[in-house]
Simulated assay, not measured.
Amino acid sequence: MAAVMYNFKPYPSDNDVGMAAEALVTSHPCLKEPGSVSGWYGWKMSLKFKMGDYRGKLSRSGCLEVSVNAGKRSKNNPDKDHPHSNIKRARRAEVNFLPNFPKGESQASLEEMRLQIMDEVQKSQQNLRLIEMLMQKTFALRRQEIIQENPQVKDFLGKWPALRIESQLCAEFQRITNVNLRNKFYAVLDQHTPGLMALYRQKAARTGKISEALRDIFKIYDLQVS
Rank of each mutant, 00 (worst) to 15 (best):
A70N: 01
A70Y: 00
E112S: 12
Q148C: 12
F101Y: 14
S61Y: 07
K32H: 04
N150V: 02
R60A: 15
L64K: 13
D119F: 03
K88I: 09
A90N: 00
L157M: 13
R60H: 00
G39D: 04
I117W: 03
L163C: 01
A23R: 00
I87S: 13
C30R: 10
R164S: 13
R55K: 13
A23F: 00
G52N: 13
R60D: 01
E145T: 15
P102I: 08
K72A: 12
Q116W: 00
H82Y: 11
P102A: 07
Q116A: 12
N100K: 07
L58V: 02
P102R: 09
W40H: 15
N100G: 15
R73S: 00
G35Q: 07
K159R: 13
L110T: 04
S38H: 15
R114C: 10
M113E: 13
D53I: 14
S109C: 02
V25N: 08
G62V: 06
E33T: 09
K137N: 03
S67C: 04
K123C: 10
A140V: 02
G56E: 02
G158W: 02
D79A: 14
I87D: 07
G39E: 03
G42S: 02
L134C: 05
A90M: 02
R164L: 11
L64Y: 01
A90T: 06
R164P: 02
L115D: 05
A70G: 03
K80A: 14
N77T: 07
P99D: 03
K48C: 05
P161R: 10
F156Q: 13
E120G: 02
E105P: 00
E120P: 05
R89T: 08
M45C: 08
S124V: 06
V121D: 05
P102T: 03
E105I: 00
F101W: 06
R143E: 08
I146F: 09
F101R: 06
Q152N: 14
K123D: 12
H82M: 13
E111C: 03
F139V: 10
D81W: 06
R164H: 08
G71A: 12
S59I: 08
M133V: 15
Q126V: 11
L141Q: 13
M113N: 11
D81A: 15
E132A: 07
E105L: 07
M51N: 12
N86L: 09
R89C: 03
Q125M: 08
N76L: 15
V95S: 13
K50Q: 03
Q107C: 04
D81E: 15
I147Y: 11
K72L: 03
R55V: 10
